[in-house]
Write a protein that binds this DNA or RNA. Structure first.
Lengths: 158, 158
DNA sequence: AGGCCACGAGTGTATATACATCCATCCCTT
DNA sequence: AAGGGATGGATGTATATACACTCGTGGCCT
């Protein structure tokens, strides 16, 4: 009896999957990331790396933990994501006044790269949202922000 | 002149980043995935693996490509994602009638695992959407679906 | 001042993601 | 029937993601 899925089981699975925010977020994330990465390829800066660099520029010498929090990312993940950017000389990892923390800085080369990539970024953005109502876009962004903060609050590692 | 970001530059970067669907989708995706994974850990089936298994169950012996399309995932990605599930004996990869294609099947063990995980899945879902208006949730899901299909259409690999 | 705990970062390991490329198979057109 | 293009899958490589754990530092409390 346990090794078959009844019609009812299948229906519940279909329903749960169709309304699953996790699944649908991930799915959308993949498709949209591919589009942005493709659009930004000429600038040599994938979407995620752009987000990190800009995050550093906006936060003014953040620590790894601080930036990770802002990006809802695990610090260990961000720590590794910094490598390729550091290798390419787009950012610098400096020891802070408190020796245990590292301060992140965008280099001059990093700034040039950001400026080069910005138009491609904005263009991808515009292209994707062209047919979207502006207020719907705002609503979606607000909903994403709420989901992020709710999820973070509810998780054990809050 | 090129190695500094003016106030105006910073403002544009902040604006673009704040309204960037890619960045905000990825951010949300990370936070929400952590929540689901944590909730489903007792069942021994992370959210992404659950989505794959259920996808197979719902599509009735799909090929890898077919399931990848349905999940907006690159076939090579899905191909690798199947490994852990196959190792654990939750699914089987059979050669199809057309020798070049593989047919995916959920095993009896896989079905038991799905049934075990379903309540945790639904609970995480309910917990996250508790404070959300049902129509907002529907709107968000619809928007995600539209974004996914738009992004897929616009990408070169459409 | 000394000791304990919290915090920041890095590592080991496992999964997730995608592009480019290669190989096999299949289908279609001539 | 033969050849050529299309399709399905796997592999090499690089990045992305997170948990558990370890290490060093710094703040705090007595």
């Amino acid at each position: 009896m346990k090794e078959k899925l009844s019609r009812k089981d299948l229906q519940q699975l279909a329903e749960t999957r169709a309304t699953c925010l996790c699944h649908n977020l991930r799915r959308s994330s993949r498709a949209v990331t591919r589009l942005y990465d493709e659009a930004m390829a000429p600038a040599g800066l994938p979407a995620n790396q752009m987000a990190i660099l800009v995050g550093i520029a906006l936060l003014d010498q953040p620590t790894i933990s601080a930036l990770a929090r802002e990006m809802a990312m695990d610090p260990s993940t961000l720590s590794r994501n910094l490598r390729p950017l550091e290798q390419e000389g787009l950012l610098q990892i400096k020891t802070g006044i408190k020796q245990r923390e590292k301060r992140l800085v965008v280099t001059a080369k990093g700034i040039r790269r950001i400026k080069r990539a910005l138009p491609f970024w904005a263009k991808a953005q515009a292209k994707l949202t062209k047919r979207m109502q502006p207020d719907l876009q705002e609503e979606v962004l607000a909903a994403l922000a709420d989901l992020t903060s709710d999820a973070q609050t509810m998780a054990k590692r809050a």
